[in-house]
Design a protein around this nucleic acid. Structure first.
Lengths: 186, 186
DNA sequence: CAAGTTAGTAGACGTGCGTTTACTTCGTCA
DNA sequence: TGACGAAGTAAACGCACGTCTACTAACTTG
């Protein structure tokens, strides 16, 4: 019983995009192969380049599709450290990394996508953060905060969800909040 | 005029090791090829596996050859945040990343070397740091500090030595010192 | 000085990658 | 209904990688 495949350009394109998003977040650019994406999307490999041009361009589209940190940078300024802390704590403890964090932690891994990631980090994190920070050395403070976010992703990859041992989420958030406060204060 | 090469097992082995150390620190495990190491060491590619077994084992030997953070974890406990801050600030501003930081920021990039890096991070950073931290949640605090170190390496890779803009080194060290203090305090 | 050991070399092997080509099949519309 | 555009497919392309093999030549030893 061969299943007859319906022809559905937009649907197939979307399946590929979703599969790529998940796989890039999970494995990083380098270890995701075209064949893996095709298999996960249940689509033919040739369709990926037909719809997206190349692996690199597909990656760029996956990154572009992500918003900024969803809901982290928006909101009252004085609660920004806490929102960042919760974001990092939740990502550290979860099974799946966030695409932005993962991309960030792989940053310069591939020269091929270095510029794509740099632009994305700039527009999604660094620039919005600099704008939010009053006072001197805003850039310095934004970089330190971003480094903490990126490093959390790296350690998540290295140790898995159990990286922190087993303190209560609230203890983690409290500690991270204070760290981010010191990072960001003017 | 062909130069006649002298036979020098230990010398060649050392040239390979040095070349590998520099290249791994600069490019990361994945983007260093055996041929690149051989060219940089001015040695035949087959000698690498003759002396080290495999690329993976060469990488392990390069990591093993690095001490812990040189001089960072040793010294008075109360100055630890400042020493970490200086280490990170200097690495951020320099042209070349440290092998340990680079390896850390590439951590889970390659499943092939995941365990090697994990062991190295544990023995070089995490465990010594946990031992130095009194009070509760030592693991949590060590992980946050390590994340900051790893993330700094990632951003160094992404933005180069100019990542921070151009504040004075002392301003960078001062800010980082306070951040590490909050990371580490009991 | 002859034989043996071993550092050093050239080149191929198999694999997996991103990409491309040539083709088949589905759906639509004149 | 038949022609045509486009969605989907199978298979191959060229390339770069880590690894390995067969060989050459330098040094050592009796």
């Amino acid at each position: 019983m061969e299943e007859v495949r319906r022809r559905d350009r937009e649907g197939t394109r979307q399946r590929i995009l979703d599969a790529a998003r998940q796989l890039f977040a999970e494995l990083g650019y380098e270890h995701v192969t075209m064949r893996l994406i095709a298999a996960e999307a249940d689509a033919n490999i040739a369709l990926i380049n037909r719809y997206f041009g190349s692996k690199r361009e597909l990656f760029a589209e996956v990154l572009a599709m992500q918003g900024r940190f969803p809901g982290v940078l928006e909101g009252p300024r004085e609660e920004l450290p806490r929102r960042l802390a919760e974001y990092v704590a939740d990502r550290l403890g979860s099974d799946l990394g966030s695409p932005v964090m993962t991309a960030l932690s792989r940053s310069s891994a591939s020269p091929e996508i270095h510029d794509i990631i740099k632009d994305r980090v700039n527009s999604a994190i660094m620039e919005p953060l600099v704008v939010l920070l009053p006072g001197e050395d805003a850039r310095l403070r934004a970089v330190i905060a971003t480094a903490l976010i990126a490093g959390a992703s790296t350690l998540h990859r290295l140790y898995g969800p159990e990286a922190l041992g087993s303190p209560a989420r609230e203890a983690v958030v409290a500690r991270l909040t204070r760290v981010f406060e010191v990072c960001l204060e003017g």
